[in-house]
């Protein structure tokens, strides 16, 4: 596999700078308030987790932030600039990548091609030709494959993969675009325990290298282990926010979702 360099990687700002912000974001469907007035701040080089029971509006919030779901109210800011009216397809060009709650790989493409899809937006004309003529794989694609460990299945189609592997291919696709901000919607849903631990470790490594992340998950243990901050939601509303340990111990959060046993998870 030959690789070619390509531009796209940008210097990360110092850890803790505000990268992305939502101000009073609301998404209503008729009378249903899926998301109702959420303020959040995503700081560079940190992982913010969004916690909440099913139907609490986590995925809708992610959709609103990535402009796939129209805002009913509020603003979304990237580097301090309002992008509430920017077309969703522009966001990828500004360094925001995401995965979805369900596996969304193209069934007729190989795993390699699916990963390449994530890097295509940054390909310049020269690398596009190199890829077409010499079948060269660009460096970010090779790197994403290596990091997610999907190198053994590159020639397979998504239908031939186990669920856990398919999810890793999705993360690879998101990484292949060398994003500044990565948003993951339940990345470990359906994975077994070793796979979950592996993904959590990967996310932490990426964080240590400066990748800002927004993580939506059900797995509370993983959230506590992985995130720098947690934001708890219930019925579209902000319930609690802060250090993971504090949030999962918060009585309101426990009542809404967790149950007492998560005291132990937080203490570890």
């Amino acid at each position: 596999m030959t690789t070619t360099e390509h531009p796209g990687a940008t210097a990360a700002p110092p850890v803790g700078t505000t990268v992305l912000q939502t101000v009073d974001v609301a998404v209503h469907y008729g009378g249903i308030k899926a998301v109702d007035g959420i303020d959040l701040t995503l700081e560079s080089g940190r992982i913010l987790g969004i916690l909440g029971p099913n139907g609490s509006g986590k995925s809708t919030l992610l959709g609103a932030i990535t402009r796939l779901v129209p805002l009913t109210r509020g603003r979304v800011l990237l580097d301090g600039g309002d992008y509430s009216r920017t077309p969703a397809s522009r966001l990828a060009h500004r360094g925001i990548a995401r995965t979805f709650q369900t596996v969304r790989l193209l069934p007729d493409l190989t795993v390699l091609e699916n990963v390449q899809l994530g890097a295509d937006l940054r390909l310049d004309r020269a690398s596009r030709w190199r890829e077409l003529v010499r079948r060269a794989v660009s460096a970010p694609v090779a790197e994403a494959i290596e990091r997610t460990g999907v190198g053994d299945v590159l020639d397979l189609r998504p239908g031939e993969l186990s669920y856990g592997t398919a999810r890793r291919v999705e993360i690879a696709r998101a990484l292949a675009g060398r994003p500044r901000v990565l948003m993951l919607d339940e990345p470990t849903a359906g994975m077994n325990q070793p796979e979950r631990i592996e993904v959590a470790a990967l996310l932490r490594r990426l964080r240590d290298e400066g990748l800002t992340q927004l993580l939506v998950e059900h797995d509370v243990q993983m959230m506590v282990d992985t995130c720098d901050r947690l934001l708890a939601m219930n019925q579209g509303r902000h319930v609690a926010e802060g250090a993971p340990g504090d949030v999962v111990r918060d009585p309101t959060v426990q009542e809404a979702y967790l149950g007492k046993r998560w005291n132990r998870a937080a203490d570890q």
């Binding site: 397809s89 990828a92 937006l121 675009g177």
Partner: peptide, 12 residues
Amino acid sequence: EDPQLAVSLGVD
């Protein structure tokens, strides 16, 4: 196959 996915990958 998936227009919404295409949008999220930067395709207009």
